[in-house]
Design a protein around this nucleic acid. Structure first.
Lengths: 205, 205
DNA sequence: ACTTTTGTTAACCATTTGGTTAAATTATAT
DNA sequence: ATATAATTTAACCAAATGGTTAACAAAAGT
C-alpha cells in the first residue's frame, strides 16, 4: 500500500503552527502542547506525523534554511557584471525577507545555540553555495582598477550585513527610533532601492 | 547586622557560569542544574543568591545590555565631526564585541523571543540613547552639501549593520568561507580599520 | 459486506526541571 | 566562649513536558 498523499491538511496545519511557534520561541522555548493548540489538533498527532519534537523542529528548520541559503547563489553563481550582481542580490534577498521577516533570526539563533546540529544538517542536505566565484570577480575588478582596492571578503560582508541585518535588528531599531510597522516597511522599501547604490558608491572610483 | 560584601566569590562564580550557559543556550535552553555544575556549587545556591531562574537571567541580561547599548552614545552624543564620529563608533563598538563576541547575538535573541520582558527592562533600567542628534547632524551635512544625499536613518543602519553583523553571522560566515578562529580575528581586525572608511567613501562627494 | 489500513482522541506515564526545606556548617558579633 | 546570622548541602516536591498507549472513527481495498 502506497502512502497516498491523502488530505494533507492536518500535516499542513501542524507545519504551519510549528513554524509559527518555533520561529518565535526557538526549539527549547517551544512547547509541543502549544503547537498542537495552535494547530487545533491533539498533541499525539504531532508524534504521529513527526515522530518527536526534534524531527518536527528539523523539518521546520530545513524549510527555513532552504528559503534563505540557496538565494545566496544569486550573488555567487550568476554571470552578471559586479555592480548588477550586487543590485540583484540586495533586491532578491530583501524580497525573500520581506515575505519571511523572521527567518533570518530564526536560522541564526539555531546556528548559535546548536551549531553541531546545524553543521550536520547543512553538510548533508543543503547544496551550500560557494562564494569563490564572486570573490574572484571582485579581485579581478580590483586588479583591473575598475573599483577601489578592497578585500573581497570585506566587501561581501558589507553587502550581506546591510541586506540582512535590518531584519534581525528590527525590534531594536523600532524601539530605538520608534518606528511602527508601516514606517518600518517603508524604510525597507527605500532600502531595497538604495542600499546597492550605497555599496557601489563606496567602491566606485 | 548589615549584609556585608562577604566573600562574593560564590556569587561571582554563579554569575560567570550563568553568563556562559545563558549566552550560549538562551533563557529557555539553559538548565539551572547545568549552571550550578558549571559554577561548581549546589543548585540551591542559585536560588539563595538569585531567587529564581527569571531573576538570574535578568541579571545576566541586564549586564549584557549595559555593555552594548550605552556604547551607542558614542555615536549619538559626542560633538565630533561626522566622519570622525563614524570612525570612532566603528572602532569603539568593535572593541566591545571583540571582548564579548557572543553578546550581540544573546541580546538580539532575547529581544526576539521575549520582546515584552525586553521592552519593560529597557524602559526601566536602561538610559536609552536617542539618535536624534546624530540623525540631525547627518541631515545638516546633506543640506550643506558636504556629503551625498542619503536618508539619515539609512546611513545609521548601514553603519550599525556593518559593525555588528559580522559578530552575529560569525558561525555562518566561518562555515561558508571556511575561516578558522585566527582568520576570523584577522578579518575583524582588518574590518575595524577599514569599515568606517568604506562608509565614508560611500557618502563623500 | 467486511477487513485492513490510516487518522484521531483521551488518558496515562516517566523524566526533567525549577524550586523548597530542614538540617548542618561556617563566619561574625558580643 | 557562645549566641546569632550567613552560607551551603542533600533530600525532597510539585508541576511541566515530551512521549506512549489503547481504544475508537474514518477511509480504502477486497
Amino acid at each position: 500500500m502506497v502512502k497516498v498523499a491523502k488530505d494533507n491538511s492536518t500535516e499542513e496545519k501542524i507545519l504551519e503552527a510549528a513554524r509559527k511557534i518555533f520561529v518565535h520561541k526557538g526549539m527549547t522555548g517551544a512547547r509541543m502542547q502549544e503547537i498542537a493548540d495552535a494547530a487545533g489538533i491533539n498533541k499525539a498527532m504531532l508524534h504521529y506525523y513527526f515522530r518527536n519534537k526534534e524531527m518536527l523542529f528539523e523539518t521546520i528548520f530545513s524549510q527555513a534554511a532552504q528559503k534563505l541559503f540557496p538565494q545566496l547563489n544569486i550573488i555567487f553563481e550568476s554571470d552578471l557584471p559586479l555592480f548588477e550582481k550586487i543590485e540583484n542580490f540586495v533586491q532578491a534577498y530583501m524580497d525573500v525577507m520581506i515575505e519571511n521577516p523572521y527567518l533570518p533570526m530564526f536560522v541564526l539563533t539555531e546556528m548559535h545555540q546548536n551549531p553541531e546540529r546545524f553543521y550536520k544538517k547543512m553538510k548533508g542536505e543543503m547544496n551550500f553555495p560557494k562564494p569563490d566565484k564572486f570573490l574572484a570577480q571582485i579581485e579581478k575588478e580590483v586588479k583591473r582598477g575598475t573599483i577601489k582596492r578592497i578585500s573581497p571578503l570585506q566587501l561581501l560582508m558589507n553587502i550581506i550585513s546591510g541586506t540582512i541585518f535590518p531584519f534581525i535588528a528590527k525590534p531594536m531599531f523600532q524601539m530605538h527610533i520608534g518606528l511602527d510597522e508601516l514606517q518600518f516597511r517603508q524604510f525597507i522599501t527605500q532600502r531595497k532601492k538604495e542600499y546597492a547604490g550605497f555599496v557601489i558608491d563606496a567602491i566606485r572610483k
